[in-house]
Structures are given as C-alpha cells and as structure tokens.
Design a protein around this nucleic acid. Structure first.
Length: 489
RNA sequence: GGCCCCUUCAUCUAGCGGUUUAGGAUGCAGGAUUCUCAGUCCUGUCACACGGGUUCGAAUCCCGUAGGGGCUACCA
C-alpha cells in the first residue's frame, strides 16, 4: 500500500514549489491506489500562523489536490487513523522517541548553551558542534542538576547511502554531519526528528520532496536506523526556479499559487504546467494533460534531475488551451464571479445570454480575466472611444455618418435580432454603399464597443440587443457631427 | 570554503553509443484564413557549456574546467 504525504510548514502561503511537490505525491498515490496525507509541520510556533494554514488548504483544494488523511479544515473534521496531523499536537510522541534514543545511548544530553557554541566552527567557518557533551559520564550529568539541555543525536561513524528514485545512489560521509539537535531545550522537536517519527508512525512508503532535502536525507536515514524502522523510498525532485533562473522568491508575484487564481488562470492549467516543469510523459510530444490524464501517465522515473525555469508565456498558452477545452456552460460559470467582481450585474441576464457570451469569448481568452476587457461594453456604457482606433477608423467623419445612418435605418426594421440575419443586413448595406464588409463593420464596432478589438461583430451585436445598438449608433453620429464641426472651423 | 545535485535551441524538453542533416512545444518572425483581435493551419528562427579521454563510432560513457542550484541553525 502506497502512502505519500505533503508536509508543508504553515509559515507562508502555498508556494508554487510546494504545490509541485504536493502534486507529485498526490499523483503517485492516486496512480497506485494509495493514500495521500496532509501533515502540517508547525513545530516552530513562532512562524506558524492560522491564516497560512487556511491559505494552504484552500490552495490545495483549488488545485484539486485532495487529501485522504489530514487535519481538520473548515467544516471537514480530521481524516485518517494516524493523527493528529499537526506536529504541534504530537510533541509527546517526539519526546518519547527522543528519550528512547537517549536511553539507548543513541542520543545524549547536551548542556552547552547556544551562545557558548558560537565560536566553534569547522575549517570552513560553519558552526560545528565539537561534541563537548558527547561522552559525559553519568556523574557529570547528575552534577548539571536542573541545568537546561538539548538532546543531540549521536551521529555514527561510516557513511550513509541514499538510494534515490530520481537522483540515483548518492554517498555521504557521516563525518560531515555533527551531532545535531533532535529535541530543543524547551522540549520541542527539531524538524529532522519530527519528520522521521511522523514518517514512521504514519507509515509513509514514499517520500517525494524537493532536492533541497537531499543533503538532509542522511540525517533522516540515520534516525530511521537508530529507531529501528525500515526506510521509505526517497525521490528528490529539482526545485522550480523563477524566470531569471533563481530560487522562486516568496516575494515574487506568482510564488503564491492563489495569485494565479486571482489572475484568471485555471487550476487545470496550473497543475498541467507545474507537472511539466521537470516531468514528461512517456507519450512523446504530448503536453496537454488534465488531472485524470496525469494520474494515468505519471511516473517518478520520468522526472528530470535538472531544475526548470518558470515561463509565464507557456503557462498562458496552456491556460488558453484549457479554457478552449472547457464546455461552454462550465466556462460561463467560471466567468460569472469575475464579471460580478468588476461590478457587472450578471443576474439580469439569462443563462442562455451568458452562455453565448462565454462562447463568443472562449477562443480569445488567454486568461479568464480577459473577459472583462472583451465584454465590458455589454454591461455598461463607455464614455470614450479608443483614440488610435478613432483616428484610423473614423478618419472622415462625414462618410462614417452616412454609413451609420444607412445601417441604423436598416437595423431599426429588423425584427429577428439574430447574428446571421444581422450579417445579411450589413452585407446588403455594403453592396449599396459599394464598400467592403470590413469598411463598415470596423467603424461600427468602434461605435458599439468603444474599441477596435473584441468578439465576433455580429455575435456581439446580437448580445448587445437592438435597442442598445441603435442608441449607440445615435450617440456615435452625434459625436461625429460635433467632431466634424470642430474640424471645419 | 566544504559536501551534494545539475548543465541539449531564449524557455520547457525528447534523446539513454550508430536509425540524428539533433525531434517536439512555448516564444519570436513571416504567410494563409478573416469583420477586429484571437484561434486554427503552414513556413522560418534557434541548442548538445568548454577541454581532454574511451570507442570503428559520443549529445549519449569516463575525467577535468567553467557556470548554476542546494545543504551547511535549538527554520522547515
């Protein structure tokens, strides 16, 4: 039975890198009918904040990464039989294990204060615990009385081998690790102990995580061995870099997964893109994957060893692809909150009307938010015409006025306001005026929408409605007459 | 600094000793379609970090060099 986990520290929002790790763990579990566990590594009370806990869970939910076992979230109570799933609630367990190691002589009490150790560094200038308390006699320990102490792990001699599913076999000399602390003076566990104890007790079979943990893994393996537990399989994947090739800083927009939601990206696209950042399908040249597709094709063997840069442009392309892949009704529902957020009242429109809106915008949307630009004129009147377009399309106001009056007359007699019929009306007008369709459509688009670009013209006019169309034509004619007057002076 | 990992077009990558004039995608440039934009289709642009080996033969294996990243806390 495969059991994987994502173990974030709730000291910030859901980082894109954490999302990648979560996704890989989730995919691997789903692929193997295993269990995916969410565990919060909140042993550092200083840095933990409930709002981050909430943001992370919300982020996972948004991405579609659900957990089979994990702490309570919102209305959902704790799930799973290996809880609690917050390290802050498992302190006694860690202490028990630490003292077990202490009794077995695999760990020892260290009475050195942090300050007193500051001057001890290795040849290279790094702090390195010289082992002052490593061989204290029982009498010496009794002498210390109630002096505060930490528990340090007695790092054994020899070497530790990491057999990694992605990195291969990596050798580490134990001598490069000093006797690290496993239990702090205040009784809190340190990350390494907590991780190992949890992975043991939660019966984790596969630890998939960022390769920033690769050099921590020997410590973990030594602890597993000391605790007499068998090792999980390890898979260390490369980190996600920003567009400059550097570590994806938390301060950067986009580091927070929910930034993408706010920017109008689909969770499907984020998941697809992030999966591709360091993994390829065995199916060559395929890039479009839904979550079920990913479950079907995912394999650890095809994860790369080199770090990948984040590329917004490619994400945007993929996002457009996923938007176009959505059934129109689905797209409509996703567009509604965005429209509402911009103050457009969608409740006065029919479902059918809104579906048509989604349909005429669908192939033009790189992001959902773009709908605001493409369709704002359908919800509110505008006060200015796009300047450049006006200069280009309404170069000779007198002529345009003639066009507009002509088409306005014809439109006012149309009884079935439907795009195909409207097109015919325009075609007739063009024949009559002896101009090409574009020569009439483009200036009219500016009159109706205030812009030179937008959805298909006849479709847009259908949604605008007869009354608004006639009204905006009148407004444009009036505007052009005034303008013409000024130029004549 | 030490230890560990990485290095194919601008970017994500395929490639796992001969099938490679190194393939795909994004981007960029151009063309076609067209009521604008977009989409779609077509064409073009662009790479094996460097230096040594091994081999009949290397992007693929080995060793150096350079560059990038990670770890090096009573953070995780």
């Amino acid at each position: 039975m495969v059991r994987t986990r994502i173990a974030p520290s709730p000291s910030g929002f859901l980082h894109i890198g954490t999302a990648k790790t979560a996704l890989y763990n989730w995919l691997f579990a789903r692929k193997n009918n295993g269990t995916f566990i969410l565990r919060l590594e909140d042993t550092d009370a200083e840095r933990t904040d409930e709002q981050y806990v909430h943001g992370m869970c919300e982020g996972f939910k948004w991405l579609g990464i659900d957990w089979d076992e994990g702490p309570p979230f919102g209305d959902v109570p704790e799930k799973g039989n290996y809880g609690p799933y917050r390290q802050s609630q498992r302190k006694e367990l860690y202490q028990k294990m630490a003292y077990q190691l202490l009794e077995q002589g695999k760990a020892y009490k260290c009475f050195c204060s942090k300050e007193s150790l500051e001057s001890y560094k290795d040849e290279t200038g790094n702090l390195y615990y010289p082992g002052f308390c490593r061989n204290l006699t029982p009498d010496q320990i009794i002498e210390k009385g109630n002096a505060p102490y930490v528990i340090r792990f007695r790092v054994p001699e020899g070497e530790t081998i990491v057999n990694d599913l992605i990195q291969g076999t990596v050798y580490f000399k134990n001598s490069q690790y000093d006797d690290f602390i496993i239990l702090r003076a205040n009784g809190d566990p340190v990350f390494h102990l907590a991780v190992v104890v949890d992975d043991i007790t939660m019966k984790i079979t596969h630890v998939i995580r960022g390769d920033d943990h690769l050099t921590n893994t020997p410590r973990h393996i030594m602890l597993f061995n000391a605790l007499g537990a068998s090792l999980p399989h390890y898979a260390h994947h490369p980190l996600v870099h920003d567009e400059q090739g550097r570590k994806f800083s938390k301060r950067l927009h986009g580091a927070n997964v929910l930034d993408w939601r706010d920017d109008g990206y689909l969770p499907e696209a984020i998941v697809n893109y992030v999966a591709l950042l360091g993994w390829t399908s065995e199916e060559e040249n395929r890039e479009f994957f839904t979550l079920p597709d990913l479950i079907e094709h995912f394999s650890i063997e095809r994860i790369n060893k080199s770090a990948a840069r984040f590329d917004r442009k490619k994400l945007e392309w993929l996002n457009g692809l996923h938007i176009r892949n959505l059934p129109v009704e689905n797209l409509r529902e996703r567009l509604l909150p965005i429209l509402e957020k911009h103050g457009f009242n969608t409740s006065v429109k029919t479902k059918d009307w809104l579906s048509k809106l989604a349909q005429i915008c669908q192939e033009k949307l790189p992001t959902l938010n773009r709908v605001v630009f493409l369709a704002d004129f359908l919800f509110k009147d505008f006060d200015i015409y796009e300047t450049e377009a006006e200069a280009k399309l309404w170069k000779s106001p007198e002529t345009i006025i003639i066009y507009f009056k002509n088409i306005q007359d014809k439109l006012s007699t149309v009884s079935t306001w439907q795009h195909d019929l409207l097109k015919t009306v325009f075609e007739n007008a063009c024949t009559e005026l002896n101009i090409k369709l574009g020569a009439l459509v483009n200036p009219t688009r500016l009159a109706l929408t205030g812009k030179s670009i937008g959805p298909g013209f006849f479709e847009l006019m259908e949604l605008l409605g007869k009354e608004k169309t006639i009204e905006r034509l009148s407004r444009a004619i009036e505007y052009l007459q005034n303008k013409g007057g000024i130029t004549r002076e």
